[in-house]
Simulated scan of single mutants.
Amino acid sequence: MGQARGATWARVPAAAAVALGAGALLTSGPAAAAAGWWSVAGLALAGLVALLTAVSLADLAAQSCLTGVSAHVRTRLGVLPGRFAGVLDIGGRVVGAAAVAGAVGAYLWPAQPKVAAIGVLVCVAGLALGRVRFSGPSRWVIVGVTMVTVAVFVTTGLAIEPVRQAVDAVADAPGANDATGILAAAGVFFFGFLGVERAVGPRARTGLVTVLVVAVASLLVFVTALRQLGGPRLALSPTPLRDALAAADGAAIDPALTVGLAVGGLLAVRSLLAGAGAGLTDLAEAGELPAAATVHRHLITAVAAAAVALMVDPTTAVAIAATLLLGSAAFLNSAARTLCREQRSSWVPTGCCGLALSVVVGVNISTGSLLAAVVVLGVGTGLCTLRVRRVRSDTPG
């Protein structure tokens, strides 16, 4: 029992590193574009949604040996909701991997970011296909590099007084302080809490600790970038952390920043594609997809992410990914609503609260991301439905 608890708590730093690897690269610019300094409130709201969802997942996991989102939803709510949840979760992770790869590409090769993004995805897919796994020490090195990079960026950015902006942000322009954009900023910031589920398991307290660690670190990164660049510049920057570091007269340590962000980004891409592959396996085991989807899951997810990275810029991709993942979170929280009080780890009805907030935040990110999520859900659900009907038609009797 003690060893299991220790192993669960040991996953907290790794989960936080995955979340920061994704969030630090992607969320600051779009969040600032939506609400300016009001995005801080959006970050708090995103953290609350992530916490409620993490506790719901922990409570569900404590009642069964299931691990996948769609498996929990299928067991509690039925086949069709489980199919919806699985498609949304897989789609969100694939699009999210493309977004992170695109952001890493912008830092590694600014002249050809899409080429660099494909290179990142090929590298991660190669490691997965070659069954290369990071050992304990190497994993801790990766986590340490990510954390140190964030610490150096925040320390440098907060130690230097920012240059006063020559022109104030115009009202309604990207980056202006706009309280009406809090929900959109919260949706984008929710993407920065990816990886929290890796530390949850059946213990809700580990989810709480991970969410708090990620929230504090994300707040420091965002405040540092926004303080140095101001809302308009941060909203338009493809590499906000690099530009914020340059504004803080820290260009000399840019190579170290690039390496650290690349390492964190690679860790996040690997985790996202692994999660999408696990989702494919779950649907295949439930008969929703062919068995070949399990065998070729690494190739399928990598190719899909590469296609998204070529077609969609990282800012748009992160909005779509966040919408999809919030949809999946809504179904997961809805499944947790079926738990009675004795089965919940808290007196707070996390399922009800998480469901409401997931829906409200998800539909307010942007109209384009909502439409894209509907298309992904429709196509994915349609493919699963056709597969099920074909199996039934081929089954005698």
Rank of each mutant, 00 (worst) to 15 (best):
G2A: 09
V12H: 10
V12D: 02
A15H: 03
A16K: 00
L20G: 02
L20F: 14
G21D: 03
G23F: 13
T27C: 07
P30L: 06
A31E: 02
A35H: 08
A41R: 02
L45Y: 11
L48W: 14
A50M: 11
L51F: 03
T53V: 12
L57F: 11
A58W: 11
L60K: 10
A62I: 02
S64P: 06
L66P: 02
T67R: 15
V73Q: 00
V73H: 00
R74S: 09
T75G: 04
G86H: 01
L88K: 06
D89L: 10
G91N: 13
V104I: 15
G105F: 05
P110H: 10
K114E: 07
K114H: 08
A116Q: 07
A117S: 13
L121C: 01
L121H: 08
G126S: 15
L129H: 11
G130V: 04
V132W: 15
R133P: 07
F134Y: 10
G136I: 14
S138A: 14
R139P: 05
V141R: 13
V143K: 00
M147E: 13
T149P: 06
V152L: 15
V154K: 01
L158Y: 12
E161I: 08
R164T: 15
V167T: 11
D168M: 14
V170W: 07
G175N: 03
N177S: 11
G181C: 08
G181I: 05
I182G: 02
L183K: 06
A184D: 00
A185P: 15
A185Y: 14
G187W: 08
G187K: 00
G187E: 09
F190W: 07
F193N: 01
F193R: 03
P202R: 13
R205I: 10
T210C: 08
T210W: 00
L212K: 12
A215H: 07
L219N: 02
L220V: 12
V223C: 06
G231Q: 05
A235V: 09
A235W: 04
L236A: 10
S237I: 14
P240M: 09
A244W: 00
L245P: 00
P255G: 04
A256T: 11
L257N: 06
L257D: 04
G264C: 11
L266Q: 00
R270K: 14
L273D: 01
G275D: 10
A278F: 15
A286V: 09
G287E: 01
A291K: 11
A291N: 14
A291M: 12
A293D: 08
T294C: 05
V295N: 03
H296W: 14
T301D: 03
T301P: 07
A306C: 08
V312I: 15
T315L: 11
A322Y: 04
A335L: 04
A335M: 08
A335D: 07
T338F: 10
C340S: 15
R341N: 06
E342W: 13
S346H: 13
T350H: 07
C352V: 14
G354R: 00
L357N: 06
S358V: 06
V360R: 08
G362W: 04
V363H: 13
S366Q: 05
L370S: 12
A373Y: 01
G380Q: 02
G382I: 07
L383G: 03
R389D: 09
R390D: 01
V391E: 07
P396N: 03
P396S: 07
